[in-house]
Write a protein that binds this DNA or RNA. Structure first.
Length: 566
RNA sequence: GCGCCCAUGGCUCAGCUGGAUAGAGCGCCAGACUACGAAUCUGGAUGUCGCAAGUUCGAAUCUUGCUGGGCGCACCA
């Protein structure tokens, strides 16, 4: 019997069972038990209740109206004519309104352990991406201040998504877009100048649009230390521009360092200024105007985004002649495609959702499919401390930075907490809870399962029982229901990754991990792994080693440490 | 006013894209270490899946309409 299944056990079994059913229906038709009908897509599902078998098919209910027969009668005919010549099934049963339930032989399930242990850290890696080039753009915060907790969530989502897509066969590039051409950056330079003057004795009223955090003061004070006070006498515009560059550079380096300590790295930092080189933006607009996507009302230039379903057209060149942010963004996305990416993924704060239609319109005008740009919205983080909201304001400089969160709760807990909800739903992040080393904090639950397994294997080794290879064990000794549950869960891992990659809903990984860790803890408390029975111990060591591998693989995608001791 | 998202036990959320008796964690109650790690486990109580229609063998899931909440609706980024 061949157990070659590239996309995982479940995928393999579903195909197998679907073809068994298709054959049986054909036989039934030939025998006159069923009328000559068009066979629909055969769905094989995994029942929520294990009493309903390992897999189930609703085929009889789907056929019922077409065949004008009672579903129970149809399913009986199908069951009786099922030809399991390979002997993969323990039994089949008919249940409910007409489900056909399949129980797969335990021997077959146990082969999953062989696969996990053969492939080790590669187990779960898929090739569904077909080496397509994907670019994930995320964080992209303007270097006007340190990253705060809201950025942190987007950072983890982008980072984990990138790891996931890499593991499932895409070629991924992670990019950070630096908005350094607009007037926010100008305000940064101005803010530094105000602090500079203040530090040198002037009395300053800070305008609303200036940044007032302490980091601005530090940068101003560094400039004074290094270069003195001569900027007081110089042309303000030049000084602001220079201070801009200095401050932007310093802050960007700090951001990079914070991200690195958070486990987030980028392949590329892209500066908005690049887009304006060689008149890039205006050349692009010219060419779009020739194609009829852009028109003038005499004073301003408009992009006809309504042609692609936006609610109104959008300005690209203002009355004063300056291009809008949108204009640069069109050029940026054209640039991305020009670099050869097949799929673009943008990760935005959910408050930007109104911006989606115009960007989709733009890429369609550029000749791409709407589906080539996927936009993931990340909802804001509700920061709490012991249940009480923490005030946040960027301008006033009152916010909790990524750095502070890292220092307070650590990388693993912070990352895991951000991954426990769908990214498009609000997230309460409680600093006190994230710090707790208790079961209120699921990251420890999962890490503990991993450490516990390592500990058992260590202890077995000390007693002279080295964790054996699958070939040297008798897996048929694994007969406990908890063992079957664990094996089935390991088998589901590649399929879970596939669904996660397809939907880009990375929270599914944390839910899977919680379940797997729970199944293991439960098993552990009921069954002793290392016993006097050498053969049984060997088989169980192989089982928990496979659990360890899968826990480790999934945690690796999340960028969370899988400790051997805690 | 228009558009997008959301509504599931007391709280925070899942629900594998239409399946069988809707699940976890926290909290509450009652139990389990002379034991491979108790950061764990076992059992119990809690639900008109916001409301109302529709689609079909079958709806938390799809359609429409309400109600209630979040967020957008710049020649800001």
């Amino acid at each position: 019997m061949s157990f070659f299944y590239k996309k995982g056990f479940t995928f393999f079994m579903k195909n197998k069972l679907a073809s068994l059913i298709a054959n049986s229906v054909a036989v039934c038709t030939k025998k006159g038990l069923l009328p000559d009908i068009r066979l629909p897509q055969i769905e094989i599902e995994v029942p929520a209740n294990p009493d309903h078998g390992d897999y189930a098919s609703n085929i009889a209910m789907v056929l019922a109206s077409q065949a004008r027969q009672n579903p129970r009668k149809i399913v009986q005919a199908i069951q009786e004519n099922l030809d399991d010549s390979e002997g993969i099934l323990e039994k089949t049963q008919i249940a409910g309104p007409g489900f056909l339930n399949f129980v797969v032989k335990d021997d077959l399930w146990r082969q999953v352990l062989r696969k996990v242990l053969d492939e080790k850290e590669k187990y779960g890696c898929l090739d569904i991406g077909g080496e397509k080039k994907v670019q994930v753009e995320f964080v992209s915060a303007n270097p006007t201040g340190p990253l705060h907790i809201g950025h942190a969530r987007g950072a983890v989502v982008g980072d984990v998504l990138s790891s996931l897509l890499t593991a499932t066969g895409y070629r991924v590039s992670k990019e950070y877009y630096i908005n350094d051409a607009g007037n926010q950056m100008n305000n940064l330079g101005k803010s530094v100048l105000y602090r500079y003057r203040e530090l040198l004795g002037e009395k300053i009223e800070f305008p609303d649009n200036c940044y007032q955090g302490d980091y601005i003061k530090e940068i101003a004070s560094d400039i004074i230390k290094r270069e003195g006070r001569h900027y007081l006498a110089q042309n303000e515009e030049e000084t602001v521009s220079y201070f801009n560059a200095v401050a932007g550079g310093v802050i960007l380096e700090d951001i990079k360092k914070d991200l690195k300590d958070f486990g987030v790295t980028f392949d590329f930092y892209f500066s908005e200024k690049e887009l304006y080189k060689d008149n890039g933006v205006s050349n692009l607009l010219d060419s779009l105007q020739k194609q009829g996507f852009i028109y003038s009302d005499g004073e301003t230039l408009w992009f006809k985004t309504t042609a692609y379903g936006d609610e109104k057209d959008r300005v690209v060149i203002r009355k004063n002649g300056d291009p809008t942010y949108f204009a640069a963004d069109i050029a940026y996305h054209q640039n991305k495609f020009a670099r050869g990416f097949d799929i673009l993924i943008d990760i935005w704060g959910a408050d930007h959702h109104g911006y989606m239609p115009r960007l989709w319109a733009a890429i369609q005008a550029l000749g791409h499919d709407k589906n080539d740009l996927k936009i993931i919205l990340v909802q804001l983080v509700n920061l709490l401390r012991a249940g009480e909201p923490v005030a946040m304001s960027t301008r006033a400089g009152e916010f909790v930075t990524l750095r502070e969160v890292l220092d307070e709760v650590g990388k693993d807990a912070a990352r895991y907490n951000f991954l426990m909800r769908r990214s498009d739903s609000h997230l309460d992040f409680d600093l006190e809870v994230a710090k707790k080393q208790s079961n209120e904090n699921p990251v420890f639950y999962v890490q503990y399962a991993h450490a516990r397994i390592c500990s058992i294997i260590r202890m077995a080794g000390e007693r002279g029982m080295i964790c054996p290879a699958f070939e040297n064990t008798d897996p048929s000794l694994l007969v406990e229901p908890e063992e079957r549950t664990l094996i089935k869960m390991l088998a589901r891992y590649p399929e879970m990754l596939e669904g996660t990659a397809r939907t880009l809903e990375i929270h599914r990984i944390t839910f899977y991990l919680n379940e797997l860790a729970g199944a293991f803890h439960s098993y552990y408390n009921r069954n002793k792994v290392v016993t006097d029975n050498a053969a049984l111990s060997a088989a169980r060591l192989v089982l928990i080693d496979a659990v360890r591998v899968v826990l480790g693989n999934a945690l690796k995608i999340l960028g969370v440490n899988a400790p051997e001791k805690m």
